[in-house]
Amino acid sequence: MAAGAGSGRTMSSTFLPVRFWLLMPSWLIIGFFLALPVLLMLVYSFLTKEFRGGVIWEPTLAAYDQFLFDRGLFGDDPPQIEWKYISIFLRSIFQATGATILCLIIGFPTAFFIATRNENTKVIWLFLVTVPYWVNLLIRTVSMKFLIRDSGPLNELLITIGAIETPLKLINTNFAVQLGLFYSYLPFMVLPIYAALERYNFTFSEAASDLYAPKWTILRQILIPIIKPGIIAGCILVFVPSLGAFLAPDLLGGAKTFMIGSLIEDQFKGNAGNWPFGAASSMILLSLVMIVLIYYARAQSKEQV
């Protein structure tokens, strides 16, 4: 550790004169691809909407007002709290939570299974987890739709083996959306948990077992607390993209009700054509995600103290 720190110091003094230029690429990437677009959205969310899409450069709070207050169909009723968009957000959070739980239930045992294989077969298992993800997300979501539709292979199989008599109504339900999101983001759960398990020293479990701790206690008291950062990272990596997804809700949920992603999409490329409102919804979504992440980061740092 000391040697590493020492070499770090000499390195930094060697590169000190050119440090600015060496950091340039990362600043450019962060600035150009992250800060600039977000800033643009922030600015747009405070502009006046142009009829049929586009913005007029006059500052206004109209977009946020539209999000929070309901002024009736014609816009001249006394303002009331607007539940429309809040319920879209709540629905999205519900779907994303469902997907995260599904991912955790399947992802944790999968990661555990892979981590406990021997070195040679581990690689193969990890490889197998990633194979489906070489196929485009759209294709995967559409094939999921084919699988679970009323006359699809899943229902036909279940009927043939006599498990059910009428087809399960899966397509166009909340569960179908969660299933689609689960399938889309499963590796994001498996891989961080696997990485945490990889570092876990299994002799702890053995020691606990020698002291007559039942398996459940070992899992709850030793394994899970140690790999908790991996689990939380996995949950965040699944939850956050699920929140803004629109492919799965559109294709599997029937697009009947908007999720956050499709609400925003509709403002830019759909019927509504209200760019500032789309930008404002994105900013609100972004703030929600930030709050979750900051909360997590603080909880983490508190634990480490």
Binding site: F51, L73, F74, K84, T257, F258, L263, N271, G273
Partner: peptide, 17 residues
């Protein structure tokens, strides 16, 4: 016209939420 179209847009969002 713009006024009616905005009412239509309102209805459309209500329809989908």
């Amino acid at each position: 016209d713009q006024e009616t179209q905005e009412v239509y847009d309102q209805m459309w969002t209500r329809l989908r939420s």
